[in-house]
Design a binder for these strands. Structure first.
Lengths: 184, 184
DNA sequence: GAATAATGTCTCAAATATGTGACATTATTC
DNA sequence: GAATAATGTCACATATTTGAGACATTATTC
């Protein structure tokens, strides 16, 4: 039995990632349910949005933690976590987008923001380690690398949507562009 | 005397780039005019959107052509055009976004699409040359590089919006990430 | 297969977004 | 500073989006 609530959330992440103010009907269509059903699961737009964020954090944090634990070596960790991030796809990029919006003021005080920071804590921590030990090019900053990472995920997603590149090939290309792009 | 029409277009590009279905009031606010004034210049949402696309094509195509003509050397051209693209900022990324939307079917027959292709004709042509002569890593494709380019522009824009990185520094970082990322 | 749960259909009221007319106010030009 | 152009304010009609009730239809469970 498929979980309707979950499939609506997945649909919403996909739609909102492209069009933040998209009408809920688009989300319902994407999830192949009626708008009425959507409203049975989510009181209103805000609640749906919140659930999306929670889902993303859960999925990304779990994938990252899992990748983190596959090895002790910081360089290998980087690669494992990179691929984990790729596999999270638009789940990954959506939250990031919300937190880089023009009018968004990022502040650790805000609970949303601190949870966002926490989601990528392990990832950023490992980056910091690679930076201070000089394995990653010195001119880089953690912020730049993190944004760059998110961008490469977008490139990957686009290539998959267009279907012009096989998944495995695209993953390799993505890792190449990312790792070389940060000076490894 | 400032050109109201132009400043509304600039505002719209900024807003729509972040939120495609944003209410026109947001655009008006960003342009520091009332919604009423916006409607005096643009019949409706569609007309505004069309003008945005026209403006982008004009600006990007001009910047690209200009950079193209600074040198004959393909590698130097790549760098010049890259920086030109950076300087076009969100003008650059907005059109690209429209043409990579989930439901967008890209087709040369469509006038919009062919004009889009044309905007980056010189850029893509030069890329192709670098690929066939083996200067750029063989595994790459023109599409991947173009998407990657657009992504790096986004990273650059984000860094500038946050103000955490000086413009000149960010430009250097961007070129490093891009050039290394495509295997130069 | 009866009972229960989930979803769809149709309807409607409220909220929000859109586009325009009428006129006041402010800039600009000569 | 009078004439003109541009913009703002307010009001309004229309269109779209949103959220929920009532009930029919379809799945699921026991």
């Amino acid at each position: 039995m498929k979980d309707t609530e979950q499939s609506i959330i997945e649909a919403a992440i996909l739609i909102f990632n492209e069009d933040l103010s998209a009408p809920l009907e688009k989300v319902a269509d994407q999830a192949q349910v009626t708008r009425r059903t959507l409203h049975r699961y989510f009181k209103d737009r805000k609640e749906l949005m919140d659930k999306c964020q929670k889902e993303i954090r859960k999925a990304c944090a779990a994938a990252m933690a899992n990748a983190y634990n596959t090895t002790q070596n910081p360089k290998e960790r980087l690669e494992a976590m990179f691929y984990a991030g790729l596999d999270c796809g638009s789940k990954n990029t959506f939250l990031h987008k919300l937190h880089t919006l023009h009018d968004h003021k990022h502040q650790a005080a805000n609970e949303e923001c601190s949870e966002y920071d926490h989601t990528f804590e392990l990832w950023k921590g490992n980056l910091q380690l690679l930076l201070t030990t000089g394995i990653i090019n010195q001119g880089m900053t953690v912020d730049w690398i993190h944004n760059f990472f998110q961008s490469v995920v977008v490139v990957f997603i686009n290539s998959q949507q267009k279907g012009s590149l096989a998944r495995a090939e695209a993953r390799q290309l993505a890792w190449f562009s990312f790792s070389k792009g940060i000076g490894i």
